[in-house]
Every structure is written in structure tokens, then in C-alpha cells.
Nucleic acid binder design. Structure first.
Lengths: 341, 341
DNA sequence: CTGTTAGCGCTTTCAA
DNA sequence: TTGAAAGCGCTAACAG
């Protein structure tokens, strides 16, 4: 079904059909209705490729994210999708599995696909190989979750959030607080969160035990169980770099015969919706995942409307919230191995 | 960057550039390398819209799903994405929130976007308003998770799976087994699973208590807690229509002072990866979510290669597996309220 | 092996 | 208010 067919059947020119759809008030009500009726009869759908080719605008946004298996990004994507539709845009999401080369491949794919703009969550803006190319290509883009002085970003103050969380744990009587993280090198967020942890510990005058880094999420439970059993001065609280890690930490504690939160408090980061349905309900630093997506889209659309590309000073810092759950409690008055500490 | 520019700079015709990219062996190695070098220098990316317009093939697949907030569909989408990339296709996913009108809107959007084929998870194939249009449009499509005699579907035998699960529970000594489901009318899968439950109960010669239908997932925990507290002949086991519901059921049990699995066994359906990390680890009927996505794509690509549309007889029934966890145990020898039963 | 050229479906001047 | 026609970037005959 082409515009030609509609024009022929309606007895008007293709230009008129085009106008009837794109500028309804530039044609007389009579012809407009005629065209609309015929189009409906013929089941006409304007061809997006032809339109894109002609106008040089696709009304499609590319989205690059690490994975959808982490509900954090699924929630964010949901926010992106909703805002995109509201703004008249479609989206093409591509996942990268936290791999640098995949990030670059994804950007290429999307650029070749004529997207008008990009929203991306990269491993690390500083080391990303995809970003420089994007910049020179002149395509508007915005980073979500990442935080970097040279790029437009929509994020939260991870560092401050974790530092605050440490303070809370200290107020609950915890002294031996450890941090659990994925590969530090693979994510600027993990690095920021770790810095926040170190800051919080320093502020409280506490020694920070070595970071518990679990390179592969699949092995997190085993690695953690090992740590929880082996350590003599076992931590009484764990701050986890994300909720998935927190969930696995709770399991690791269980497998080590520790009860959460009585023997071990666990705090997550992300605020995935599922966390509230767990038993114990996850105590976590909640990010507004859906809003991060929404604001990214709105920023992008706004910039595109102005025909410009986004600058770093357009960055947005969204509020986070400490979400109380049941995986976190006061440190026991009576600590085991007290003599050894 | 157009093909013209590359041709000019390389001193060849546009046709040669096109060939160098699409049929490398139809040009001499020398010119091919020349073209490739110039293209790289100019940072040339072929324009997808122009190519689509010309060839009438977009190499894009549309994906329609209820939501990405349920990890089941996120896992499936991951499988779809991987298979699509392997087959040289990009995907555009659209979520519908289980709403009929959204399903129709999504299909329209995708069709206008020139997708070559569609993979969809609809609420109910029988009542779907989007499917008939799709059929007449002649666009290849396949349903995932749904099951229907008139459409090509990739699914598992939900009915048989649930019936088997009931049998297992019976063998564990359970007699009072209830089923928890979302809105039955909203999903053919829920209906199939319920039928399987009824069949399993009948086979065991047991009375099936009324279905516990929780219309809105958000309220599931409250509604369930209420049921678990109010019932005199409280069930000793719950079969849940999906894993999210199972997780909420475990929480509801906890809030009602019941321990899982000692006081109540809970079995889910879906096999989301997260279930294995929970405490207790979720006992569930696992679907091969990623494979469902992969097979859907492969079926579709295969059909498109043959220039045909998929028929109902191409449907695939994939194997499911009962995944043992910790949320399910033998019924207590010594049942409370035994006298009343 | 390479070049010329028509045309995919649409929007957008420019004229009428 | 409407129509004629050019052209977006690419591929695929067809000719050489």
C-alpha cells in the first residue's frame, strides 16, 4: 500500500495525500476526510523508510544497555519506552553484556540504522571507545547511570548515597562493614560506590576491610560463602554494589549458616521493584530507575528539537532514597569473636 | 556520508561501491580494497532506510511482549536478541502491559516501521484483535508462550507441566493444594495452567479448592496473606501460575506467620534465573525462556528465507523441567486441624 | 569486471 | 487549495 494507490483511488495527487496526513489544516476538510476514508479502506500505512530517507529523521532512538537480565535496566528501559512513545519516538534497544567491543558494535549498528539520538549505559565513559566516535558523528546522545564531567549524564550521586548508607550502618552499631562488588574495572558506577564506601568508613573512623570483588556474578554465591566462613573477624554488615549481588549475598549467608539480618545485615543498591517482595525485604539504596530513563529521553528530545547535540552541562543528578527493608538490623550487642577484634 | 561520496573519492561508480559491500566477490580484490579503504576513511555507513526502501526488506524483527518487568520476558527477549543478531536482524521490542488495545497499537507501529516479521506474546490468541490484521497483511509472525491451533506458536505444554507438578506434590503427601493465579481472562497461559491443575487434582482424586485469583499483582501479597490466615483448612501447598506470584506468595506466607516450606510448600512456574538465588531457592516449573525466543526467531527467519508466512503446523512444543528448590517439602505427617479436614 | 540508470515511497519546493 | 516534479541513498537490471 503506497501513497500512490491512495492518491489514485481518492482522485487527488500524492502531495495532497501527504499533506492530509502531515498538515491536516493545509487541505480542505472535505479532501482530508476523503483521503482519510480511502486510506482506511486501503489499509494504508505510511512507509517509515521512505519518510526517513526523505526527511532525514527516523523518529527512532537507540538504546545501549549492559543487559536486561538485571531488572534495574529493564525498569529503566520501561521508563525510556514510555517517554519515547509519549514523544512520538520508537526505540531500538541493544544489549552489550558489559563488553567494550559490543558497545562499539551496538553504536555502529544503531548509527547505520539511522537513529536520531542515543541513550547509553556504558561500562565506563572514560575508557569507552564508542563515545568519541559518537561525538564526531554529531549524533545527540546522553548517558544514563554513568557519571562523567565531559558527557551529558542522567544519574544519581552514588558516592554520596553509599557514604550515607555506611553512616546508617554505623549508627546501628556496625563496625565491621564490608563491601561486595562486581569487577571494579568494568563499571564506573562500581567505582563510585566503592569510593562512597571508603569515604563513609573513613568518616566514621573505621578501617575498611578489603573489597570483596566477585568477578563473575555466577560464582558470587560460592565466593561469598567462602568469605563468610573463612574470615575470623567476619563482617556484621555487607554493602553490596547492586541488588542482584545483595540477593546472592543473602543466599551465601544462608548457606554459611548465618541468618539475615540477625547475624549479618545486607544493604543493596538499585532499588529493583522485586526487592520489596522478597523475604526478607531488601534494604537498599533506591535509584529512580524509570525516571532515569524518562529524563534521558526528555533531555534528548529537547536537544533534538533545538537541532543541537547535548552538552555535559545538561547533566541531571536525580535523587536517590534509602529504602528500609528487613535485611538490615542493629548489630548484636553481643558480638561473636569479640575478643579477637 | 553517502555512497556517492565514496564512489567519487574512490574514482568508481556507485554500483561498484554497492557491490564491494554486498557481493565482495563480484569485484576485483584491488577495487574492493580501494573501496573499503576509502569508505573507512570517510567513515561511511550504508543508509538502512535507503536500502530498506529499495530492497523492501528491513532486516528488522518486531517483538511484542507484555512487559519487561517480568524476568521471564526479559530472558526471552535476550534469547530473541541473540538469535536475531546471529541471523543478521535487528529487533524493535514493544511492551503492551497485557492490554489488548496496546497490542494492536504495537502491531500497527511495527508494521508502519517496515519490520520483516513479528514475534509476539499476546494475552490470548483467541480474543486478540491484532492477529487477524496481521494475517491479512501477510507479514510472517510467530507467537511465543501462547498456544493456539490456528497460529504458529513456540511454547511448552503448560497444562501437562502443572498436572505433573500436582502429582509430585501429592507424592510428597500434600492433599490440600491450592492454585494462585493472576487474572484468568487476561492470559491463555494462566488458563492452560489452571486446567493442568484441575486435571492433576482430579487424577489424584482430590477436591480442588477455589482458584485464588489475584487480579492485580501489586495487591497479591495482601490478598494472599488474607487467604492464608482466614482459611480454616489452609492449603499445605500452593501452585503459582508464575514465579513472581510464587515469590509474593512466599512473602505472604511469611507475613502470615507461616514458614516455607515447613508450613507451606510453594511451586512457581517460569524458571526465572533469579529464582535460584533466592532463599529459599524457588521450586518451579522451568520453561526454556531463552530458547523460546531463539526458536521463534529461527522459525521466522527460516520462513522469510522461503518467502512464505508461517503456518500453525510449524508450531514447536519445547520441553519444560521441574526444577527442584527449597520452597517445597513433604507435607507434615502431623497436620494441623487434621480433625477438621 | 564495471558503469548507467530507473525507481523504491515519501516530502517539499515551486507553480498554477 | 492543489498538483507536478525533484530527489533522499541505495540496489539491481542491463549494457558495455
Amino acid at each position: 500500500m503506497s501513497i500512490q494507490a491512495v492518491a489514485a483511488k481518492a482522485g487527488v495527487s500524492v502531495a495532497t495525500v501527504s499533506r492530509a496526513f502531515n498538515f491536516p489544516d493545509k487541505v480542505t476538510p472535505a479532501t482530508r476526510e476523503l483521503v482519510e476514508r480511502v486510506a482506511r479502506e486501503l489499509n494504508y500505512l505510511p512507509n517509515a523508510s521512505a519518510r526517513t530517507l526523505r526527511t532525514q529523521r527516523s523518529r527512532v532512538l537507540g538504546v545501549v544497555l549492559p543487559t536486561l537480565l538485571n531488572p534495574t535496566f529493564a525498569e529503566c528501559l520501561q521508563g525510556i519506552a514510555r517517554a519515547a512513545v509519549a514523544g512520538g519516538y520508537a526505540i531500538i534497544p541493544v544489549t552489550t553484556g558489559y563488553q567494550l567491543d559490543e558497545e562499539e558494535r551496538a553504536v555502529h549498528l544503531l548509527l547505520a540504522g539511522n537513529v536520531d539520538g542515543l541513550i547509553l549505559v556504558v561500562s565506563n565513559p572514560s575508557t569507552s571507545t564508542a563515545l568519541p566516535g559518537l561525538r564526531t558523528a554529531g549524533v545527540p546522545y546522553v548517558l544514563a547511570y554513568n557519571r562523567h564531567a565531559d558527557h551529558p549524564c542522567v544519574s544519581v550521586d552514588s558516592e554520596g548515597a553509599v557514604a550515607d548508607a555506611v553512616t546508617r550502618l554505623v549508627l546501628l552499631g556496625h563496625r565491621r562493614i564490608a563491601m561486595v562488588s562486581g569487577t571494579l574495572a568494568a563499571s564506573d558506577r562500581a567505582q563510585q560506590r566503592y569510593r562512597g564506601y571508603l569515604k563513609g568508613m573513613a568518616d566514621a573512623g573505621l578501617d575498611a576491610p578489603p573489597l570483596i570483588e566477585v568477578p563473575f556474578v555466577e560464582t558470587a554465591v560460592d565466593a561469598l560463602s567462602h568469605q563468610l566462613q573463612a574470615t575470623r573477624n567476619r563482617p556484621t554488615a555487607l554493602i553490596c554494589s547492586n541488588d542482584l549481588l545483595a540477593i546472592r549475598s543473602i543466599r551465601a549467608a544462608h548457606l554459611s549458616g548465618l541468618h539475615v539480618p540477625d547475624d549479618l545485615s545486607v544493604v543493596g543498591f538499585d532499588g529493583i521493584a522485586l526487592g520489596e517482595d522478597l523475604t526478607p525485604a531488601l534494604t537498599t539504596i533506591a535509584q529512580p530507575n524509570s525516571d532515569i530513563g524518562r529524563h534521558s529521553v526528555e533531555l534528548l528530545i529537547q536537544a533534538m528539537a533545538g537541532g543541537t547535540t547535548l552538552q555535559a552541562d545538561a547533566s541531571l543528578l536525580l535523587p536517590h532514597a534509602f529504602r528500609d527493608g528487613e535485611s538490615c538490623a542493629s548489630a548484636r550487642e553481643h558480638e561473636p569473636h569479640a575478643a579477637a577484634s
